[in-house]
Computed example of a mutant assay.
Amino acid sequence: MDKLLLIYNPVAGEGAFKENLDEVVSLLQKKGYQVIVHRTSNDEDLEIVINNSKNFIDVVTAAGGDGTIHQVVNAMLKNNLTHVPLGIIPVGTSNDIASYLGIPFSFFDAIQIIGSRKVKNIDVGEVNNSCFVNVASGGLLMEVPHTTSVKLKNLTGRLAYYLKGIEQLPNLRPIPIKISCPEETVEEEILLFIILNGSIAGGFKNLAPAASMTDGKLDVLVFKPVPIPRLLSVFVKILRGDHFGDASLKYFQTAGPIEITCEANVGTDVDGEKGPDFPMYIKLRKGLLPVFVPSVNFK
């Protein structure tokens, strides 16, 4: 039997996963896996567990939101486990990675994909000393996910982020930034930037429709300073998927590397986790990570 290390976040989704843990383990066993369960508590603990398991595990599975997946992938890469497939069971508030990969939000349907053993190698972004699967971003709204209470997130889901973001809109001020890559240089005042590996971020499914985790490119969106009513209209356009060509946005693709410098004291975010300080050095590692997906024809 293949040995599967199951890592779960006990607080994601108001603890919904742990209430179904026994049945999840049973289903994975029926799919031919010997299951080793780890309840994640912090990054250091996770790295130790994966390091201690790396010589005998065949599969790593992360049950949680984007932040949990981010932590698990970083621990895997630090332990050179790029040959071990990653399974994903979506739980919690933010599941943009699972949405992009087409992984069902039902625990039990997600297990069917892990049991099918269909694997696709995806690109992984690298920023300073860590990696990201889906997105790296920066600007004056980047503190929202980290200042929203767990209780509010569990009660209202992604709406909690939007409510907190609206609360912060009156405080928005342009920030001076320089984004440099072989294809483009942006040096001006902006509101925020979003660098995508996949096409979904913040629940916006049409944010970068051309983005792909297998194309060896990153998609860059830069939001220019505009009055708040104008900014809200841009977000409405993003919901509809017709924001490209809007004068308040700059969009381009790059194979990297990207260097971002900023003198202002603003936050950054990687896969829903607090990101590094500036300067940010970003590159893409093509086809680095094998992931269980619904179809090997996934793009």
Score class of each variant (00 low, 15 high):
residue 285 R to F: 01
residue 99 S to C: 08
residue 83 H to Q: 13
residue 124 V to K: 03
residue 168 Q to D: 01
residue 109 D to V: 00
residue 196 L to W: 05
residue 294 P to R: 06
residue 70 H to L: 01
residue 58 D to I: 09
residue 90 P to V: 05
residue 221 L to M: 13
residue 135 V to S: 04
residue 280 M to R: 12
residue 106 S to A: 03
residue 145 P to Y: 01
residue 23 E to R: 14
residue 245 G to W: 07
residue 32 G to T: 07
residue 83 H to A: 12
residue 274 K to D: 04
residue 132 F to L: 02
residue 207 L to C: 08
residue 94 S to W: 00
residue 80 N to L: 11
residue 175 I to E: 03
residue 162 Y to V: 15
residue 265 N to L: 12
residue 152 L to S: 09
residue 180 S to L: 09
residue 30 K to R: 14
residue 123 D to F: 04
residue 155 L to W: 04
residue 278 F to W: 10
residue 254 T to E: 10
residue 116 S to R: 13
residue 246 D to C: 04
residue 33 Y to K: 04
residue 247 A to V: 03
residue 27 L to H: 11
residue 210 A to V: 11
residue 219 D to F: 11
residue 85 P to S: 10
residue 168 Q to M: 09
residue 4 L to T: 09
residue 65 G to W: 04
residue 50 I to Q: 05
residue 110 A to M: 06
residue 67 G to Q: 00
residue 142 M to E: 13
residue 214 T to M: 12
residue 274 K to T: 13
residue 116 S to M: 05
residue 167 E to Q: 14
residue 128 N to S: 08
residue 239 L to R: 12
residue 130 S to C: 14
residue 282 I to K: 08
residue 271 D to N: 02
residue 21 L to D: 09
residue 215 D to M: 06
residue 14 E to K: 15
residue 81 L to P: 08
residue 108 F to K: 07
residue 118 K to T: 14
residue 28 L to F: 09
residue 253 Q to W: 05
residue 93 T to A: 11
residue 165 G to F: 01
residue 118 K to L: 13
residue 109 D to Q: 15
residue 67 G to H: 03
residue 10 P to H: 05
residue 223 F to L: 10
residue 65 G to E: 09
residue 165 G to L: 04
residue 126 E to W: 02
residue 295 S to Q: 08
residue 80 N to P: 00
residue 34 Q to N: 14
residue 220 V to W: 09
residue 218 L to W: 10
residue 137 S to R: 05
residue 4 L to V: 11
residue 197 N to G: 13
residue 238 I to W: 04
residue 194 I to N: 09
residue 280 M to N: 11
residue 1 M to S: 13
residue 125 G to D: 03
residue 232 L to V: 14
residue 223 F to P: 01
residue 145 P to L: 03
residue 253 Q to G: 06
residue 256 G to L: 12
residue 238 I to G: 03
residue 46 L to Y: 05
residue 263 E to H: 10
residue 194 I to F: 02
residue 88 I to T: 11
residue 43 D to V: 14
residue 8 Y to S: 04
residue 53 S to C: 14
residue 19 E to K: 15
residue 53 S to Y: 10
residue 60 V to A: 02
residue 112 Q to C: 03
residue 216 G to K: 07
residue 129 N to Y: 10
residue 142 M to W: 01
residue 260 I to N: 10
residue 286 K to V: 13
residue 17 F to N: 07
residue 202 G to Q: 03
residue 121 N to Y: 04
residue 55 N to P: 01
residue 43 D to W: 00
residue 38 H to S: 11
residue 297 N to R: 10
residue 288 L to W: 00
residue 246 D to N: 14
residue 67 G to F: 02
residue 195 I to W: 06
residue 42 N to D: 15
residue 294 P to E: 09
residue 289 L to F: 02
residue 265 N to W: 00
residue 46 L to F: 06
residue 36 I to A: 08
residue 87 G to Q: 10
residue 104 P to Y: 05
residue 152 L to H: 10
residue 237 K to D: 15
residue 130 S to P: 00
residue 142 M to F: 02
residue 76 M to I: 03
residue 2 D to R: 15
residue 269 D to S: 08
residue 93 T to V: 11
residue 27 L to T: 12
residue 5 L to N: 11
residue 263 E to S: 14
residue 294 P to A: 10
residue 145 P to S: 05
residue 264 A to Q: 13
residue 210 A to T: 15
residue 275 G to L: 08
residue 262 C to Q: 10
residue 146 H to E: 07
residue 131 C to E: 04
residue 180 S to Q: 13
residue 247 A to F: 01
residue 61 T to G: 06
residue 146 H to D: 07
residue 294 P to W: 04
residue 220 V to F: 11
residue 295 S to P: 01
